[in-house]
């Protein structure tokens, strides 16, 4: 990692990112900066390529699509790394908890392997669950949890993997309205507390409003819509 300009290099940055299918560009070029603890929202109708943008950032882009441009995380270009070495966590609309593992098993799956000691791992998981008011769910089968509980476990699993950035692919869309607001603040609070640069894609304006950060709008053809995006680009990243 370069240390030339430490102050500028924290956070997630996309530079001239373009996505194309069969040689035809369907999104971008897009440049943006997400400072640690900041939530940047990308808004657009379904089918405009928002989810593909996140897949490109975490390295799981459909092989039929191709992406160009640079992805900088804390100053390092992670574009060439395999997904498991990018340290980019993602939450989807569905919680995707592994059905064959218990709640604790799912969280343990996320914990970095470097933490060897079994007691320490257990303690870390219990601590995370307690902090989410879910201490008694340690051994439960994910199938027995409510939608809101599953969503929280999915976030905890991602956070326990100690990512350097957080991507949110409409994770609130499937929750009912009352739950949605609570889970939204749960996610944003954690992201801010851990100083994670967070990139949210959604088509729900309320998500964007709650996120409180810059908003970038994309139209159905994948073009960026005017002013706000410029504003986002011109914003200098917050200092850590």
């Amino acid at each position: 990692m370069t240390v030339v300009s430490v102050t500028r290099d924290y956070g997630l940055a996309l530079r001239q990112v373009e996505l194309s299918y069969g040689g035809r560009r369907f999104l971008g070029p897009l440049s943006l900066d997400v400072a640690p603890g900041e939530v940047v929202t990308v808004m657009g109708p379904s089918g405009c390529g928002k989810s593909s943008l996140l897949a490109f950032v975490c390295g799981t882009l459909d092989p039929a699509l191709s992406g160009a441009g640079r992805i900088l995380l804390n100053g390092a270009d992670i574009g060439a790394r395999p997904p498991e070495q990018r340290r980019v966590g993602i939450l989807f609309q569905d919680d995707l908890l592994f059905p064959h593992l218990s709640v604790a098993g799912n969280l343990a799956f996320g914990l970095p392997p470097a933490m060897r000691d079994r007691k320490a791992r257990r303690a870390r998981i219990e601590e995370a669950l307690a902090e989410a008011d879910m201490a008694e769910f340690y051994d439960r089968d994910p199938a027995t949890l409510s939608g809101g509980q599953r969503a929280r476990v999915a976030l905890l699993r991602t956070l326990l993997s100690e990512p350097c950035a957080l991507l949110l692919d409409e994770p609130f869309a499937k929750l009912d309205v009352a739950l949605r607001a609570r889970f939204r603040s749960f996610v944003f609070d954690h992201a801010r507390a851990q100083e994670l640069p967070t990139l949210l894609v959604t088509h729900d304006p309320q998500d964007a409003a709650d996120a409180g950060g810059p908003v970038i709008e994309i139209d159905a053809a994948g073009r960026l819509l005017g002013g706000k995006q410029v504003a986002a680009n011109q914003r200098s990243p917050q200092r850590p």
Partner: peptide, 27 residues
């Protein structure tokens, strides 16, 4: 098998081999 399970596991830092043994085979 929903490939987002693999993607999620990748983003949690699991290697493709680990995903094969720990996620795909059990599921």
């Amino acid at each position: 098998l929903d490939e987002r399970y693999s993607r999620t596991a990748l983003c949690l830092g699991a290697s493709p081999n680990r995903i094969f043994w720990r996620v795909k085979l059990p599921m």
